[in-house]
């Protein structure tokens, strides 16, 4: 499993705009680069990121070979209800990682 850093405020007021910050360790190998042997290294990237909150997809992103290694994604959400915020990264070679952060909305 890749190392991921997820930063979500633990508590928020209803209606408050919160920032979700995510960082995940991934080489994001483009598929265009020659390796030490001179052969092209096969592509190995994260191609999709989704965030669900309250059972609904609230944010998603498509990632492409030009995205740097260890992609950092930050976005904002409106805090509506307490519950888990689920973050999913999927990509080449069956890569799939799920991280969950709990938020308490008062």
């Amino acid at each position: 499993m890749a190392r991921a850093l997820v930063n979500v405020p633990k508590r928020a007021h209803r209606g408050e705009v919160i920032e979700v910050k995510t960082l995940i360790a991934h080489p994001m190998e483009t598929g265009y680069r020659p390796g030490p042997s001179g052969r092209i290294l096969p592509r190995d990237i994260i191609s999709r990121f989704t965030c669900t909150y309250g059972g609904e997809e609230v944010f998603s992103a498509e990632l492409h070979p030009a995205v740097s290694a260890n992609p950092y994604l930050a976005f904002t959400l409106e805090a509506r209800e307490s519950g888990p915020i689920t973050l999913t990264w999927t990509g080449d070679n069956g890569f799939r990682q799920v991280e969950t952060a709990l938020i308490e909305v008062a």
Partner: peptide, 14 residues
């Protein structure tokens, strides 16, 4: 400055 954005922190955690 932001430990949530500094990619070096991934290695620190490793």
């Amino acid at each position: 400055a932001d430990d949530a954005a500094n990619p070096g922190m991934l290695s620190v955690l490793d």
